[in-house]
Measured scan of single mutants.
Amino acid sequence: MKGKVVSYLAAKKYGFIQGDDGESYFLHFSELLDKKDEGKLVKGSMVHFDPTPTPKGLAAKAISLPLE
């Protein structure tokens, strides 16, 4: 699924993505496929991810940034 980063707290390594389906997904650095892309996780960045339901809500897994 595609989505847009709505927040990312680099110090805490987490944030949120708004998916194309309108839902909010929890984003964690550990799910970023290329850790070098962390600096690109800023508000408004477009990402691809696997939407995954968890006991705490919806989460983004296997997060990647589109090729530039």
Rank of each mutant, 00 (worst) to 15 (best):
K13C: 08
F29P: 06
G57E: 00
L32F: 04
S24D: 06
I17F: 01
S45H: 10
T52M: 14
G57N: 03
L41A: 02
G39A: 14
K40L: 10
K13I: 03
G19S: 04
L27A: 05
G57A: 03
G22S: 05
L27Y: 09
S24Y: 14
D34P: 02
M46P: 10
V47L: 05
A11N: 12
K40P: 02
T54A: 07
G19V: 02
L33V: 12
A59M: 14
K43P: 14
S45K: 14
K36T: 12
P55M: 09
Y14E: 06
D21C: 04
K40R: 14
H28D: 07
E68Q: 12
G19F: 02
G44R: 03
L27H: 01
K35W: 09
L9T: 13
S64Q: 09
K35H: 09
D50I: 15
I63W: 00
E38C: 05
M46S: 10
G39L: 12
L27W: 04
A59L: 13
T52E: 12
G15T: 02
G19T: 04
I63L: 04
F16E: 05
Y14V: 05
D34R: 07
E23K: 15
G15D: 00
E38F: 05
A10C: 12
D34S: 08
A10T: 11
A60V: 02
D50A: 13
H28C: 08
P51A: 11
K13F: 05
Y8V: 06
K61F: 08
S64V: 11
A60H: 00
Y25T: 00
L58A: 06
F16W: 14
M1E: 04
M1L: 09
D37G: 06
M1R: 07
L27I: 06
L58Q: 06
A10G: 09
S45D: 03
G57M: 04
T54Q: 06
E31S: 07
S45Q: 15
D21I: 01
G39D: 13
L67Y: 13
E23L: 15
D34N: 13
A59D: 04
S7A: 11
S45T: 15
G39Y: 14
L58M: 11
G57S: 03
L32C: 03
L65S: 05
P55R: 10
Y8H: 03
K36S: 13
F49T: 00
K61L: 09
G57W: 04
L32K: 00
E31H: 07
L58E: 02
E31G: 06
S64E: 06
K56C: 12
K40Y: 09
G3I: 02
P66D: 15
L65R: 05
V47R: 00
L41V: 05
M1F: 06
S45F: 08
D37Y: 06
K43T: 10
S30I: 09
V6N: 06
L27N: 00
D37Q: 11
K56H: 11
L65G: 04
K35L: 08
T52V: 14
A11R: 11
F16K: 05
K61Y: 09
L27F: 15
K43C: 10
E31V: 03
P53E: 13
P51Y: 07
L41G: 02
Y14T: 05
G19R: 00
G44Y: 04
